[in-house]
Design a protein around this nucleic acid. Structure first.
Length: 198
DNA sequence: GCGACAG
DNA sequence: ATCTTGTCGC
């Protein structure tokens, strides 16, 4: 159980993170090496894996980190549960764009886990989620956007949601979404479950 | 009060 | 996320 005053405090931090999110076009068509991070659990143990992949060759290498996780999952505060271990797993990896399992600014306070990690590391990030957290879906010329308070904060391709974390824009998310679910995240997810079995 | 609710 | 076999569908 997490006290109300702590969540209110965390909300203040999220507003500060959101204020520091930089939305600008990155141009992911030029990205050669991309990273992805995910986590799997076994009780209170979290197994996070960060993968760095060469877009052209498909070659990749990864780093993992195991640690105890006690903060509960609370919609809107996922970062408190997963960001610490995710950051540990990806530090040192070589790439210029990081994909995070979860939302970016498609969040009630525009501070999803991909935005938090992007701002803390001052690095380009895009959030890729398997389901909706907030916002309304609106179709506009072949594309499904996620609207929050009259603003486009993400897009949906297939069954996945893509939203800016930091230093990228909606166009980058659209270009990523068009490629289908990122292989680097699929590999991270696979390694994450494999490692927890050992 | 009721429904929604990333992983 | 995780607990879990076979099974319906593209």
């Amino acid at each position: 159980m997490v006290e109300k005053h702590l969540l209110e405090f965390l909300e203040k931090l999220q507003f500060l993170i959101a204020k520091n999110v930089k939305i600008s076009h990155y141009g992911i068509e030029n990205v050669k090496k991309i990273c992805g991070v995910d986590i799997a659990y076994k009780g209170n143990l979290g197994f996070s894996v960060g993968v760095s992949m060469d877009i052209n060759s498909g070659d990749y290498n990864y780093k993992s980190y195991v640690g105890e996780v006690n903060f509960p999952y609370i919609p809107g505060f996922l970062f408190m549960r997963e960001a610490p271990l995710m950051i540990k797993a990806i530090e040192g990896l070589d790439c210029h764009l990081l994909l995070v399992d979860g939302h970016g600014i498609a969040h009630p306070r525009k501070s999803g886990i991909a935005a938090v990690i992007g701002v803390l590391l001052d690095f380009p990030t895009i959030g890729v989620a398997k389901s909706r957290l907030t916002g309304d879906l609106v179709n506009e010329s072949e594309i499904t956007y996620v609207y929050l308070n009259g603003e486009k904060v993400g897009v949906k391709f297939g069954r996945y949601f893509y939203s800016p974390g930091n230093k990228v824009d909606l166009q980058d998310c659209i270009e990523l979404g068009k490629r289908g679910y990122p292989k680097v995240l699929k590999i991270a997810d696979m390694l994450t479950k494999k490692i927890k079995k050992e």
